[in-house]
Amino acid sequence: MRVMILVKATADSEAGTMPSLDLLQAMAQFNMELKQAGILLSGEGLHPSARGRRVAFDGAERTVSEGPFGPTESLVAGFWIWNVTDLDEAVAWVRRCPNPMPGPSEIEIRPLYEETDFLAAATD
C-alpha cells in the first residue's frame, strides 16, 4: 500500500528556518535507509506557506489567495510517499525518523487511494 507521510509545519518551518547540518545529515541517512528498504517512492520539503497560493472553488468561481496560511499546525512542511505493507509498517518507520523540526513536531500518515478503490466504488 502507498502512504503519504506528512511532516506538519511549525513556527520554525513557516519562518523559513533551515534545518541544522546535523538534522540534514540524519534525514539523509534515514532517507537512504528507506531507499535501501525499497519503501521510499518520493519525498520533498516545502517552502513556507507565505510563498504559496490557494485556489478556492465555488461552482464555476475561482478565488486565488496568497499565503501565508494558518493555523500553522494545519499546514504541511514536507512529505514522503512510501510503499509499505500496511499502516503498522509505516508507523514503525516513522518512529525511526529523526525529529524533523528543532522542537516539538508531528508527522501524519495517510493511505493513498489506489485505482482498485475507485473501481470497487464504481461497481457498487
Rank of each mutant, 00 (worst) to 15 (best):
L119Q: 09
P100I: 03
N31I: 06
A77P: 03
A92L: 02
A26E: 06
F79T: 08
S105T: 08
A77M: 01
G103D: 15
A60W: 09
P68I: 03
G78F: 03
E61C: 13
M32L: 15
P48T: 11
L46K: 02
A37K: 00
C97M: 15
P98Q: 06
G45E: 04
R54P: 06
L112F: 15
A121M: 08
D86Y: 01
L75D: 04
L21M: 12
L112D: 07
A26N: 05
I109W: 05
P68R: 08
L75M: 15
G78Y: 03
H47S: 15
L34P: 03
A121I: 07
A56T: 14
D86K: 05
L23I: 03
Q36F: 00
E61I: 12
L75F: 11
G38E: 08
R51N: 14
D86H: 03
S105A: 15
I39K: 10
E66K: 12
Q29T: 14
H47D: 15
L40C: 04
Q25R: 14
P71V: 07
F118K: 01
Q25V: 09
N31Q: 03
P48Q: 07
F69W: 02
A28L: 05
L21Q: 15
D86F: 04
E44S: 14
D86N: 12
D86T: 05
S49H: 02
N99Y: 00
I81R: 10
N83G: 01
P19Y: 11
V76R: 05
T72G: 07
S20T: 14
D88C: 05
L112G: 12
V55K: 10
E44G: 14
E33F: 02
I109H: 04
D86Q: 03
L112T: 08
L23Q: 01
R95Q: 13
V84W: 13
P102I: 06
R53P: 07
M18V: 11
A122V: 00
L46A: 04
